[in-house]
Simulated scan of single mutants.
Amino acid sequence: MTTPTARLVEEGVSIWLDDLSRQRIESGNLAGLIESRNVSGVTTNPTIFAGALAKGEDYEAQVTALSADGADVNRTIFEITTDDVRSAADILRPVFDATDGVDGRVSIEVSPDLAHDTAATVAEAKKLWARVDRPNVHIKIPATLAGLPAITEVLAEGISVNVTLIFSLERYAAVIDAYLSGIEKAREAGHDISAIHSVASFFVSRVDTEVDKRLDAIGTDEARELKSRAGVANARLAYELYEREFATDRAKALIDAGARVQRPLWASTGVKDPALPDTLYVTELVAPGTVNTMPEKTLEATFDHGEVTGDTVTGYYADAHAVFDGLKAVGVDFDDVTDVLEKEGVEKFIASWHELQGTVAAALDAAPASVEEAAQ
């Protein structure tokens, strides 16, 4: 009997797990999810690593060794996170090989403190890429205004990129342009452009959270009827934009030369409103050539009772446009919504990064003075 996650794969959706920890790696849990839940990739972010390191036990030996070596907080975070990503990439390498590099990917993010600094983002992306030293890694760069030129420059170096924190169609169009520009530059520099991969991470549930708050404040029947529809509609229109932009002469010329398309990735797919179906942002966003990166809770819900009925995106563009016409009619300023969400997204990742720094600082302070002392 075909499982719902296997059905997703049949429909052209890649399932990536939005979580990583050393315990998940060393216990065999990640390998098990690849085998039983059709997981073909992993994404990480500062919040995920903050949660993993807060548990502490799996990292004690490495923290002790790094402390004895005089490592500061940032070096310790760099070593720990790149080690975990490298290990996960090795577990996923068979998937990478079997899919010609399309899947089997693990993403690691540049420090969110650099979200508004182009040059520093480029420098850290190169450093992360070199340190992990695996072809099946994506470097995550946020789609801020400063991030856009960084995306182009990092791709131009032959480095695969996961563009994160995309909320608006306008910014998504700029991300696609940054991607195409990066591939053009990589080609000019003599890189094998068929080996450069990218995904564009379009956030979903956070859109509904912000829009629904505004619809509740408006309070009319027309507003209430639009609740919990904006996130899916926005993602569907993103896919419409993706289809259009990768059918241009510019994109087709690069694809004919061996370039890959930049796949849309649905992020923030865990349902925030408990009144909604827990698989909403999976089953309503099924389309060929997409990635859905799921927290484990959403993954298990999908495996258990997700109803995968085929493509739920490309035949729904008119409905999606109607949702946005409705939002405008009741007074929701969607440009302001996406501005707020981008700002909050960066701020939340910065807060998680600082939480991670605090956790590591405390672990370094508590570490034995030497590896020998820890063994006693």
Score class of each variant (00 low, 15 high):
292 N>K: 01
336 D>K: 12
252 K>S: 10
290 T>W: 06
250 R>K: 08
240 E>H: 13
286 V>P: 01
237 L>T: 02
346 V>Y: 08
322 A>W: 00
275 A>V: 02
332 V>K: 06
349 F>C: 14
266 W>S: 10
354 H>A: 14
308 V>Q: 05
296 E>R: 11
283 T>P: 06
309 T>C: 08
299 L>Q: 04
279 T>I: 04
284 E>M: 08
326 G>H: 02
236 R>L: 05
312 T>F: 05
242 Y>G: 11
239 Y>H: 09
250 R>V: 03
309 T>Q: 10
321 H>T: 11
338 T>D: 10
360 V>I: 15
330 V>E: 05
311 D>F: 07
286 V>Y: 03
308 V>A: 12
272 K>M: 06
322 A>D: 09
311 D>E: 08
264 P>I: 04
360 V>L: 10
241 L>E: 05
330 V>Y: 03
355 E>K: 15
347 E>M: 13
286 V>R: 02
242 Y>P: 02
269 T>A: 14
267 A>K: 04
300 E>D: 15
341 L>G: 12
343 K>H: 14
244 R>L: 11
264 P>A: 10
307 E>H: 10
250 R>C: 10
316 Y>V: 07
245 E>P: 00
243 E>H: 07
335 D>V: 11
267 A>L: 03
245 E>V: 09
354 H>D: 15
250 R>P: 02
354 H>V: 13
